[in-house]
Design a protein around this nucleic acid. Structure first.
Lengths: 171, 171
DNA sequence: GCTTGAATTGATATATTATAACATTCTAGA
DNA sequence: TCTAGAATGTTATAATATATCAATTCAAGC
């Protein structure tokens, strides 16, 4: 069994998730400092909730967890915070899931392409030039100029393929 | 100015839309006959409403038009009918728009890739093997097995690019 | 420290999209 | 004609998202 490559976009079921979270916060803090943004308690909490797993989470689930954490909150609270985090590329919205996922490279402006495991729910983000090129060139044959490609792919992740889609929970 | 190629997936702003509608119905009738499905008044009406333009239409807008047409209807009526039409590939759902669009090749089981013009709202459907291949192969590098790729691309269509995004209404 | 304006958050209401559950009607075939 | 299954009607509600205005907090300059 080969280990997970360094640059593998898809989190292994047995990876060190605490490290993911720590790195996500480090990146966020750096980004906020650089851009003069405020990393408020609310934003920090929402980001933390989103990074509790590699599964997309819905706005109302985020809301519930905020309340569990003792914070007064309404839907607007969550949506506003999500909008802010998305503007700064710390979070992406998966339109096919009505749910939100953390992004591990907020520095670069991008939309990303997402692999969503049907069984375990884990999401991996790609940034593949070949996919984008194929879309742009195909679109161009009909004169269409691409601005915002949405690519969200459901299927089975490496680990769930091995389990033949039996599935099991994990971070 | 070159004319629109025969197989162009993107409808020209000045195309003969009556012909689109007629052909859509011909295809639907053929499909229903072949598969022993019932092309009821309701299904026919919904299909007709959807084909009134090449722009995606929301379920509640369909509902309104059904009512305008003198039909009693509730949201369920529309959603059930949409589900049926989607099962039979006569209609696709655009997840990024929460809206529905007619499909001109229901014979083949497929998901399609969509070009959505930000300005005029018109949608063109692609079936490009290269895009799918790029997605599958990239996914495979991380062991991910693709089942249902969602590709929805917003941008500017040929006509709106020429107008520099000024836009104007049409079928 | 104080003031002030902008950013952030709170709070209330409502819009939009979609599904659940059960009743009734229609239709094709025995 | 009868009947079973398909289709539609009906009512209620869930799930997702936005609009609006008020209150609070924060950072910068005085």
């Amino acid at each position: 069994m080969p280990g997970k490559p360094i640059q593998d976009p898809f989190p292994d079921h047995a990876h060190d998730h605490d490290r993911c979270v720590k790195e996500a916060f480090d990146r966020a803090e750096k980004l906020f400092k650089q851009n003069g943004l405020r990393l408020t308690d609310l934003r920090r909490s929402v980001l933390e909730i989103i990074w509790q797993s590699h599964r997309p989470i819905g706005a109302y689930d985020i809301l519930d967890r905020l309340k569990d954490g003792g914070r007064r909150a309404a839907p607007m609270t969550v949506y506003r915070t999500l909008d802010f985090l998305m503007e700064n590329q710390l979070v992406h919205r998966l339109t096919s899931q009505n749910a939100y996922i953390g992004c591990d490279h907020p520095e670069e402006s991008h939309r990303g392409q997402f692999l969503i495991c049907r069984t375990c729910g884990v999401v991996g983000e790609l940034s593949d030039a070949r996919i984008i090129t194929a879309i742009k060139e195909t679109a161009a044959t009909t004169g269409f100029s691409v601005e915002a490609p949405v690519v969200e792919v459901t299927g089975l992740c490496r680990d769930c393929v091995e389990l033949d889609g039996a599935g099991r929970g994990h971070a």
